[in-house]
Design a protein around this nucleic acid. Structure first.
Length: 843
RNA sequence: GCCUGGAUGGUGGAACUGGUAGACACCCGAGACUUAAAAUCUCGUGGGCCUUGCGCCCGUGCGGGUUCGACUCCCGCUCUAGGCACCA
């Protein structure tokens, strides 16, 4: 082996990671070490394990977040292989999206060109990290071979009413002639051109995720392997509430105003009605009134205000009286109807029964407009008096002033009132969700075209499945139109109707890129199948994903959409599972100087530089060692140096003992000295500890420190510079310890370990090895330290044989010199003995 | 405002189910090697006190509590990160 610089100078020695890493990457590629055979669905007897990291957007080059994410996944993949699993570990590219269009415009290139170039570069970077992917399964979502299947899935969803079109309000930038996503609108202006964004009514395509709301909520209980945090976030996002819909008659009219409430128990406390400014009934209510114009102006003003408000500031509550009343069906009260700026048309019925005594918003509104406040639910032991209330009382309690329902508890009253409404035909129990249907239309170029045709005669016509894929139009010219959205491309739009053959136009929207990432994990199980999106048998074998790893920023959208797609694909007959990801690990961010790495902060660390300076193994080792995966990782250049130093120490040690280790390979383990015993014990304790750290919660940081401890023990008991280390420790035990170190470290530091493994003349390459076997007897301590406390404070220690009787330990503790001094002649009240741990003497 | 996490030496982080707080590293300091430096190796390294002892006191964001014993459990706060936010 060569060294990086002067081979003879052992003082400046740094192991030659460049040669070693290149060598093993080539071996793995040439031998397809990590390829998972398609036949494994039938032939392989090993248990399957599917580990997946969230695939990247090919933005150009990988960043530290990727390095961390993929290192974690790779450790799990390699560990599971050593444990005898048949591991599926694929990688691909989430390749559609707006950045490609922007870059293409800037460089007068084409999004496809830009994207594929980036993929080539980044694939190379991932190879350099030594990640054990089955590259034969690589997919890029912008490839028609992928998105044709997505188009088919869309058509099947359309057939079942799960994909539908409706009118919606979008953010429109007139100067860019495009729709912007919410996150692209910054303070009401376009993120790219700074022109104001205007709302615009457009038709768009939606996926009916609300049809699965209940199942998505219910199945959260099955996700035992997900962080509670993510489950909670999804539960809140779905936002189920149960209550009552109830119709209030408009006075002097046959019209009904329908409301939804989760607090039917407060229905006798209704003193006014608030409706959304967009509510369709408004026209009917105010038509012909002498205040019609005044009201319309007010409504227009609050709608405008709403559009311009920043997402995070709350508007002052305001409203206007429509001049009309409605009737409370429970007691006949006449209730004024107001238009209010805080009522959302998109939730419930767009109308709210206002109970100022028991709802804070209604309370504020009532105070402002001098409306009645009528308390009807008294929390236990409290009598509410309208004039004395400082704020709404939102607690449950006992009903008062509520007719025949007086004295009931809130809980009982809810049911009774719902029943009463139902029996009298003006209401029904109702469940509503915060979750909205998923709008997937994007007016862009670089996305999956929606396979729909509009015919004047025949209406909306899906493209026949056998005509898929509907590919993106290639460019006819290389000018700035190279990424013109589809609606600007006449030749793409013009087509013929599949039903009548007459002239027709194509849909020009492309799909949200979240659609591609909602099913890619399933596609990996049959990535080259041209007949069907997903081969049911193969998917049944591999899915669900046993371990999914990615950033917590995808806790809601990506993970919710993937769960939704899994259920849809199941109902379409492609999958036989309910949930896609059994276990989820959300890793923390990589930060530096206390802040997220970003160009604007100038604290970005480029993985390329690190790989060149220290090699992939060191970069991986440090990113796994510096923090447990779920926590943020503070990047520290000196820490990287420390990780590199550790590998160098092992390298020097193993190569310095190469001959001995090679010879010792076939020797039996015979304990001949206390040093032998100590090393043997530490070796097996470390095997146990590392295994537990990985199995329990993937805490590689403590696993690595365990291995460091073992190596420290090894170099203390059998020092490097000793002429004849076998004087103290027998060679087979050094061999055992080194073997353990290399095997235990290999999932984290794969090239390095594979090389040293070969250098000590092991019979098989490391990739074909098994995780080291644990000998529990060997790990057992025969002497233990028992702590002696007096009144809970540590005062002395005892070294005793592990099997010493509790009574004897107690006697020893009481007669211990230090203890005698402390307790003097005072009476001992109590002695607590914790087996093999401590004695606490209470005086 | 609501819902989640988090807070431990100069730093990153350990500590099983309530049982020796600070493992393992980084930084820093001292020494060895060297003409010298780097590298490497050895030792030290939470704070304070003195009587320098296998010593004592304090110490896991703050204030209480439970317990023989609390970083760990309970109650009440502070700060911080993230998510949601007029959802009726």
């Amino acid at each position: 082996m060569a060294t990086t610089s002067e081979p003879d100078n052992k003082y400046t020695f740094r192991y030659d990671f460049k040669t070693i890493e290149a060598k093993w990457q080539e071996v793995w590629q040439k031998e397809s070490t990590y390829k998972v055979s398609e036949d494994d669905t039938q032939g392989d007897k090993r248990e399957k394990y599917y580990v997946l990291e969230m695939f990247p957007y090919p933005s150009g080059r990988i960043h530290m977040g990727h390095v961390r994410n993929y290192s974690i996944g790779d450790v799990i993949a390699r560990y599971k292989r050593l444990r005898g699993f048949n591991v599926l570990h694929p990688m691909g590219w989430d390749a559609f999206g707006l950045p490609a269009e922007n870059a293409a415009q800037k460089n007068k290139s084409h999004p496809a060109r830009w994207t594929y170039d980036n993929i080539d570069y980044m694939r190379d970077q991932l190879r350099q990290l030594g990640l054990s992917y089955d590259w034969d399964r690589e997919i890029a979502t912008c490839n028609p071979a992928y998105y044709r299947h997505e188009q088919l899935i869309f058509l099947q969803m359309y057939e079942r009413g799960l994909a539908y079109q409706k009118k919606t309000t979008v953010n429109w930038c007139n100067s860019c002639q495009t729709v912007l996503a919410n996150e692209q609108v910054i303070d009401g202006t376009c993120w790219r051109c700074d022109e104001p964004v205007t709302p615009r009514e457009m038709k768009g395509w939606f996926f009916k995720i609300t049809a699965y709301a209940e199942e998505l909520l219910r199945d959260l209980d099955k996700l035992k392997g997900w962080p509670d945090k993510v489950v909670t976030m999804q539960r809140n996002w779905i936002g189920k509430s149960e209550g009552l819909t109830c119709d209030f008659k408009i006075a002097g009219s046959e019209e009904l105003l329908s409301i939804f409430t989760t607090r039917p128990d407060t229905i006798f406390g209704v003193t006014f009605m608030s409706i959304a400014p967009e509510h369709p009934l408004i026209d009917v209510l105010i038509q012909g009134s002498d205040r019609e114009q005044e009201i319309r102006d007010f409504i227009a003003a609050i709608i405008l205000e709403k559009q311009q408000q920043k997402p995070d500031d709350e508007q002052e509550k305001k409203g206007i009286f429509t001049g009309r009343y409605c009737l409370n069906p429970f007691n006949g009260d006449e209730i004024p109807v107001y238009v209010a700026n805080f009522v959302l048309m998109g939730y419930g019925t767009g109308a709210v029964m206002a109970v100022p005594a028991h709802d804070q918003r209604d309370f504020e509104f009532a105070r402002k407009y001098n409306l009645a406040i009528k308390p009807v639910v008294f929390p236990e032991g409290v009598t509410l008096i309208a004039g004395e209330m400082e704020a709404a009382s939102v607690e449950q309690g006992l009903l008062a002033d509520s007719g025949t329902f007086n004295g009931l508890s809130s809980l009982a009253a809810k049911q009774a009132i719902i029943d009463h409404a139902g029996n009298n035909g003006f209401g029904a129990p109702h469940t509503t969700y915060r979750l909205r249907d998923w709008g997937i239309s994007r007016q862009r170029y670089w996305g999956t075209p929606i396979p729909i045709i509009y015919c004047e005669k025949c209406g909306i016509q899906p493209i026949p499945a056998e005509q898929l894929p509907l590919t993106l139009p290639a460019d006819t010219d290389s000018d700035r139109n190279s990424c013109a959205p589809l609606h600007q491309r006449e030749s793409f739009l013009q087509t013929t109707c599949p039903a009548c053959g007459g002239a027709a136009r194509r849909e020009s929207d492309t799909m949200d890129t979240f659609v591609e990432s909602s099913w890619y994990f399933a596609r990996y199980t049959s990535p080259r199948d041209t007949q069907t999106p997903i081969d049911l048998a193969k998917a049944a074998h591999w899915l669900p994903v046993d371990q999914y790893i990615g950033g917590v920023e995808h806790a809601i959208l990506h993970l919710l959409y993937s769960r939704f797609f899994t259920k849809v694909l199941r109902d379409l007959g492609y999958l036989d599972i309910d949930e896609p990801f059994t276990n989820l690990l959300t890793q923390g961010m990589v930060i530096k100087d206390g802040a997220k790495m970003s160009k604007s902060k100038g604290n970005v660390v480029d993985p390329n530089d690190l790989i060149h300076e220290y090699g992939a193994d060191t970069v991986r080792l440090f990113s796994l060692f510096a923090a447990p995966p779920e926590r943020d990782l503070e990047w520290n250049a000196q820490g990287v140096e420390g990780a590199f130093r550790f590998l160098n120490r092992i390298y020097r040690y193993v190569m310095g003992h190469q001959e001995l280790l090679t010879r010792a390979g076939d020797g039996n383990i015979v304990i001949q000295s206390t040093a032998d015993q100590a090393l043997h014990r530490k070796t097996h304790q470390t095997i146990q500890r590392v295994t537990l750290n990985i199995e329990n919660n993937f805490h590689f940081n403590t696993a690595i420190s365990g291995i460091m401890e073992l190596f420290n023990t090894l170099t203390t008991l059998a020092p490097m510079d000793s002429d004849q280390p076998q004087d103290k420790v027998s060679p087979p035990l050094i061999h055992e310890a080194v073997r353990a170190i290399l095997l235990l470290l290999s999932p984290m530091v794969p090239h390095f370990c594979a090389e040293l493994w070969q250098q000590i003349d092991s019979p098989r390459p490391l990739d074909q090895e098994q995780w080291p076997a644990l000998d529990l007897d060997a790990a057992k301590e025969d002497e233990i330290t028992v702590v002696i406390q007096v009144n809970g404070k540590m005062r002395s220690r005892l070294q005793v044989a592990a099997d010493t009787d509790d009574e004897i330990i107690k006697e020893m503790a009481l007669s211990d010199g230090n203890i005698q001094k402390i307790i003097m002649a005072k009476p001992v009240k109590k002695v607590i003995i914790v087996q093999k741990k401590l004695v606490n003497i209470v005086i």
